[in-house]
Simulated scan of single mutants.
Amino acid sequence: MPSPYRIAVFASGQGSNFQNLVDWANDGKLGAEIALLVCNKAQAPVVERARKAGIDCLLFDPKAYASRGEYETEIAAELANRGIDLIVLAGYMLLLTPVLVDLYAGRMINIHPSLLPSFPGVNAIGQAWNYGVKVTGVTVHLVDGGMDSGAVIAQQVVHIDEDDSIQSLEDKIHTAESELYPKVVSWFAKGRVHISGRKITVEHGI
């Protein structure tokens, strides 16, 4: 039998997207094994989520290293030992260096709460709200070392209605994230994603 497609999730906070991936995996819909959680905050709620799910954790303190490249080199070695096929960023609050970005080029993805290239960076939901746009959404993209600048894999539109508040918009965005992100991971696991520069195509119906 072929070995399972193995992913590592990098997260720093509550872990809602991480939990959603776990739920998809447990339901047999993800098509991948969540082999590792990488986290820079030992007390983050996502760590407890991983432990409850029986998923190994790689915890580290960035302040204990001389540079980002130093701890990323250790992470890279652990990923190689575990045969990780895809890195999934899910609220990972550290900048990445070429140590990991180059090593996993085309195999590292992130989700951003806007329709990129609009509203990159922090507080994307607030940026869209304050600008007064009528539609926003979520984007799953490759990580290329820039600020939310990697090639777009998939997007899901979220409409901003007249009776929405910033809180209701956040709720809509989080719902869209929970629908889109595990779906994209499953595409990778099934070999459906084809990358040619910034042009990414997804085979459906296979």
Rank of each mutant, 00 (worst) to 15 (best):
M108D: 00
H112F: 09
H112R: 02
A90G: 03
D171I: 14
R192N: 05
I173D: 01
Y181L: 11
D171Y: 13
S178E: 05
N81F: 08
D148K: 02
Y131D: 07
V184Q: 08
D164A: 09
S168F: 01
A189R: 05
V185G: 03
A189W: 02
R192P: 00
Q155H: 06
I75R: 01
G91A: 02
V185L: 10
V135T: 15
N81Q: 15
I111D: 00
I166W: 03
E70A: 14
L169H: 03
H159N: 14
I153W: 12
S186I: 03
R107W: 05
R192F: 10
T175Y: 13
V158I: 07
L169V: 01
K172S: 08
L86R: 09
H194G: 13
A176C: 10
E177I: 08
K172I: 15
S178F: 10
L103P: 02
D163H: 10
I195C: 14
G126K: 09
D164V: 12
E177G: 02
S118M: 04
H141C: 06
V140E: 11
V157D: 07
A124P: 13
H194Q: 15
K134P: 06
Q155L: 03
I195F: 11
I87K: 02
I87A: 00
P120F: 04
P120S: 11
D163V: 01
V158Y: 05
T175R: 14
M147V: 15
T73H: 05
A176L: 15
S196C: 13
V143Q: 11
S168H: 02
V135G: 00
V122Q: 13
F188D: 10
E74D: 11
Y104N: 07
I87N: 02
I160H: 09
G126R: 13
A154K: 14
H194M: 15
A151K: 10
I153S: 03
L96F: 05
G106H: 03
Y181T: 10
K134E: 12
S118W: 01
L142Y: 14
T97F: 12
V152C: 11
F119W: 09
G145K: 06
I125L: 04
K183L: 13
S168P: 00
P120T: 10
L94D: 05
G132N: 09
A105C: 01
K190D: 13
A154R: 15
E72F: 01
V157Q: 13
D164R: 12
V193S: 15
Q127G: 11
Y92R: 04
G150V: 06
H159E: 14
G121L: 09
A105W: 04
S149T: 10
T97N: 11
S168L: 03
I153R: 07
K190E: 14
L169C: 01
S149H: 04
K172P: 13
K134T: 06
V122D: 00
S118D: 11
H159R: 15
V99N: 12
E177S: 02
H141G: 02
Q167F: 11
S118V: 00
Q155S: 04
A189T: 03
V133E: 07
T175A: 15
P113W: 06
L180T: 05
L115I: 12
V193Q: 08
V143E: 12
R68A: 14
K172Q: 10
A105M: 07
N81E: 15
A128P: 01
L103N: 00
N110S: 08
V138D: 04
I195S: 13
